[in-house]
């Protein structure tokens, strides 16, 4: 009987998607629905809940901690846009040039940070960013004439510190995206541009950047989404995310603390729900503005 089912091309696809749909419904769809339900309730502990309507939502949008978290996420996201697009792009162009020897070695070295756990990355950078004069980063910037900075202590430097870690960790990843894109650009374009007298910068801005636009949009979208999900670095750098003056408090950290330090599971769900909406809306707006939808016609 069962054996015959596996010969029936009408039934077989349903059998094949059943395990996926089962896990998907239980652990993905249901939690999303449940989270909407929870966000309308006030919970104390796991079982007791009071329906409070939209109160949690009103509270979230007037919660100074939440608004601060959104702003911190935004600052971090903008920072990663500034570092994690131009730097990998320039690296990719240089790697692509005929003047570069040993490409694969550099690529591998730059890629390895991507494999490293953020827990480990943050732990090591906690040492590197040590605020004393003997701190590694302070020594390096000292070589260029800068005075030592209180990286993880001064509220102005907490987000830049996290951006530094992000830049270390994701440059290699974005580099791969850009080098893949560059291999799709014909060398003849550059050669004919050179003959017409275009210099290196002109070739970069009038050929490379426009032709890489879809990949730049893609990387920017990743930065955007990643920017609003920031959690691990902050959690690690400031022992559970207690950054000085809440200067690096993020939505995800606030969600975690609300749920697991204060056990307000309803309110935490509201934060999660709003967070998802923010990410979704911003990614759609970004794709719209950059003309991503038009190009697919």
């Amino acid at each position: 009987m069962l054996k015959n089912l596996f010969y029936n091309k009408k039934v077989v696809p349903w059998i094949f998607i059943t395990p996926f749909l089962l896990f998907f419904t239980v652990f993905k769809v249901w939690p999303i629905v449940y989270s909407a339900y929870l966000s309308l309730h006030e919970m104390s502990g796991l079982n007791t809940s009071n329906f409070v309507g939209l109160q949690n939502y009103f509270e979230v949008f007037s919660d100074s901690d939440f608004l601060k978290a959104v702003w911190n996420n935004t600052k971090y996201m903008i920072g990663t846009m500034i570092t994690l697009i131009p730097i990998p792009l320039i690296f990719a162009v240089l790697l692509d040039s005929k003047h570069c020897k040993g490409k694969n070695i550099y690529k591998a070295i730059l890629f390895i940070p991507t494999l490293t756990s953020l827990v480990i990355a943050a732990a090591v950078f906690k040492i590197l960013l040590y605020e004393g004069e003997a701190g590694i980063i302070n020594t390096i910037i000292g070589l260029f004439g800068f005075s030592p900075q209180k990286w993880l202590i001064s509220p102005y430097l907490t987000i830049p510190s996290v951006i530094l870690i992000a830049t270390w960790r994701w440059t290699g990843m974005n580099l791969i995206y850009f080098t893949t894109g560059l291999t799709g650009i014909s060398q003849e374009l550059y050669e004919s541009a050179s003959i017409d007298g275009a210099n290196m910068l002109q070739r970069f801005f009038y050929i490379t950047v426009p032709l890489l636009k879809p990949i730049i949009i893609f990387v920017a979208t990743l930065n955007l989404i990643g920017g609003y999900k920031l959690f691990t670095e902050v959690f690690m750098l400031w022992d559970g995310g207690a950054s000085p003056g809440k200067s690096a408090l993020t939505m995800a950290v606030l969600l975690y603390r609300t749920a697991f330090s204060y056990f307000e599971l309803g309110y935490a769900s509201t934060i999660g729900f709003v967070m998802a909406l923010i990410i979704l809306v911003l990614s759609l707006i970004q794709l719209k503005i950059t003309g991503f939808f038009n190009e697919e016609e």
């Binding site: 939690p31 999303i32 989270s35 929870l38 989404i225 599971l265 769900s269 967070m275 998802a276």
Partner: peptide
Amino acid sequence: MLPIHMQLIPLFI
């Protein structure tokens, strides 16, 4: 497209 964060609390419960 939805971040896992919105499912964390329901999943935990």
